[in-house]
């Protein structure tokens, strides 16, 4: 295990990169996903049809392929200068995160849609009957209740995203997996660097699980 003493700074920078990618992906993925789900639930087919297609395409193609299409596609369309933050090149980081966020948004959209649909229709009717507009009813009454339906599934999505960040190693983003395979090459060790990476991924997802379990309990306070 003496290779850890030598290579641990790389593991740290890789873990930081992985966490940054995951947080950015979940943040933008959730925001986009909420809007996509509202479009999907819209009665206007001009909104719901494209949103349906969006979800179908993103769920029906491999995430790895989407990452590659985004990376090569964005690089051809716009020139992002190679700016380094630590070991991370923004020219790769931005398209990579965009691909993961958009991929995640399709799954989040489905989670949010199911969460909204699970709020009884009587809640919406009660809001309308008091004179609240559609937007107020959605914001004040339906969404707060939907959040509690959504949270467990959204937590699973967060955990999936942490694991999927490893896809970005194919476009040479120095995330945890990329770092681990570099260490393999330079230390001539085959399994050990991978085991360490696996342990770090597992620790991250366990922490997220525990945090979510706590949050769910907090949200359940007062109302059932």
């Amino acid at each position: 295990m003496e290779f850890i003493a030598r290579y641990y700074p790389f593991y740290i920078s890789g873990t930081v990169a992985t966490l940054c990618i995951a947080v950015i992906t979940v943040f933008f993925g959730t925001i986009i996903g909420v809007f996509v789900s509202l479009f999907r639930l819209s009665r206007n087919p001009l909104l719901s049809a494209p949103a349906n297609l969006y979800v179908q395409v993103l769920r029906g193609t491999p995430a790895l392929l989407q990452v590659m299409i985004f990376y090569f596609g964005i690089s051809r369309l716009v020139h992002i200068p190679s700016v380094y933050i630590g070991t991370v090149n923004l020219a790769r980081f931005i398209p990579g995160c965009a691909a993961l966020a958009i991929n995640s948004s399709a799954y989040t959209a489905e989670i949010v849609r199911a969460g909204i649909n699970a709020v009884p229709i009587g809640q919406t009717e009660a809001g309308y009957s008091l004179g609240l507009t559609k937007a107020m009813t959605m914001r004040e009454i339906v969404l707060p209740q939907a959040v509690r339906n959504i949270l467990p599934a959204l937590g699973n999505e967060f955990i999936s995203v942490i694991k999927e960040t490893s896809l970005l190693s194919v476009i040479a983003i120095q995330d945890l997996l990329f770092v681990a395979s570099n260490i393999q090459a330079s230390s001539y060790l085959i399994m050990e660097p991978l085991y360490v990476a696996a342990a770090i991924y597992f620790t991250l997802t366990c922490c997220v699980s525990a945090a979510l379990a706590y949050l769910e309990k907090r949200l359940a306070r007062g109302w059932r």
């Binding site: 009660a126 009957s129 004179g131 007062g222 109302w223």
Partner: peptide, 14 residues
């Protein structure tokens, strides 16, 4: 200006 009371109450649980 039209209040409504429902069979299932429909109070806001949150």
């Amino acid at each position: 200006k039209m209040g409504m009371v429902f069979q299932q109450f429909n109070l806001f649980p949150h």
